[in-house]
């Protein structure tokens, strides 16, 4: 198991290198001079040259990349061209907000969508199921920026219940999280409903009923656990979506997060900040995917047996047998 995790973490290195090359050169080769953007169009030639020398922008792009990566290996994320701050410090204050939005909405989505999906499967083809079908379509077709504005209008402006700007207290989290989950609640609950219905047709479910299991046990112990497997794959793939979504949400709710930071940096060709934003998102997404894959093993013993060491497996079994006798 630990070997497997280690292997997966090692696999992240080539991914990070590839992402860094693509992003660095795409930004570097795009038109616009970062020094002029940072200093303003009216800056004097000497100031621009000094700026370029300070940040190593006078060197060829390939050299710039190597310098950047060298810094990265020494643990330095560089200095922002525009704010003149260390990028690491900028991220330190912003990372939490983005992680809360991305993983918070991920958790909140499935916390509601899983029970809802099971309920919909149980009540298949009832009026509840039919209404939810229409609602789900509506919910997933609403653009989040539009929905966010409506939420602000209702809960902040009209009712005055929740703050609309910033991310300081948990009360601030409610609107952005709901806004980001709203669309996925519809889609995911339908998906889970279908997975459960698919599973419930399996022979082992009929077998569980024939054993005399109460319907609740049939549903949660037998059906849901097996239905979760394809769901975990889809969660793993959704992690990226939630990170992407946080960019819009941070913009909308005035949250000082990584998404907003990266977006602002992109406008100003602030390469170190862009790179840091993208690379950290990549790491978070990769770790999220790894977690999803590990969960897969947790749920499905067929996968787990691939991870575990044969000798250990035997040992565990012997312990279990001696415990039972």
């Amino acid at each position: 198991m630990i070997r497997y995790i280690f292997k997966r973490l090692l696999q992240m290195i080539p991914i990070l290198i590839a992402v860094s090359i693509i992003v660095f050169f795409m930004v570097g080769l795009s038109p616009g001079d970062p020094a002029k953007i940072a200093l303003g169009m009216n800056a004097k030639e000497e100031t621009v040259a000094a700026f370029k020398a300070e940040y190593g922008l006078d060197q060829p792009l390939g050299m710039q990349y190597l310098n950047y990566m060298g810094g990265l290996l020494r643990g330095s994320l560089g200095k922002s061209y525009t704010t003149k701050q260390y990028v690491a410090n900028m991220i330190a204050v912003r990372l939490m907000a983005t992680v809360i939005i991305a993983f918070g909405s991920l958790i909140l989505t499935y916390l509601i969508a899983i029970p809802l999906g099971v309920l919909l499967a149980v009540k298949q083809n009832s009026w509840f199921d039919n209404i939810s079908r229409v609602l789900a379509l509506m919910m997933s077709s609403m653009p989040s920026f539009w929905l966010g504005l409506l939420l602000i209008l209702l809960f902040s402006v009209k009712l005055g219940l929740l703050p609309s700007n910033g991310f300081d207290t948990p009360a601030h989290w409610i609107l952005p999280l709901c806004c980001s989950c709203f669309g996925s609640w519809g889609g995911s609950s339908r998906y889970i409903r279908n997975m459960v219905l698919e599973t419930i047709r399996q022979d082992y479910i009929r077998m569980a009923r024939a054993k005399g299991c109460p319907e609740r046990v049939v549903l949660f112990r037998h059906a849901l656990r097996n239905a979760l497997m394809p769901l975990i794959t889809s969660i793993g793939m959704n992690i990226g979506t939630f990170f992407g979504g946080s960019v819009i949400l941070e913009q909308l709710f005035g949250i000082n997060g990584m998404g907003k930071m990266t977006l602002d940096a992109l406008r100003q060709k602030d390469v170190p900040t862009i790179m840091a934003g993208v690379l950290i998102s990549t790491v978070l997404i990769a770790v999220g995917n790894l977690l999803a894959d590990l969960c897969y093993g947790l749920v499905d013993p067929r996968i787990r047996s691939i991870y575990s060491h044969p000798r250990k497996r035997k040992l565990k079994k012997e312990v279990a047998v001696s415990g039972a006798n």
């Binding site: 399996q202 022979d203 082992y204 009929r206 077998m207 569980a208 009923r209 024939a210 054993k211 005399g212 299991c213 037998h222 656990r225 097996n226 749920v299 499905d300 013993p301 067929r302």
Partner: peptide
């Protein structure tokens, strides 16, 4: 209380009749 207790059933396909988890 009758199912699996007084009357029980062996299903046709053992490959799919057991819960894989």
């Amino acid at each position: 209380k009758v199912r699996g207790n007084k009357i029980s059933m062996i299903f046709q396909d053992p490959m799919t009749s057991l819960n894989p988890t």
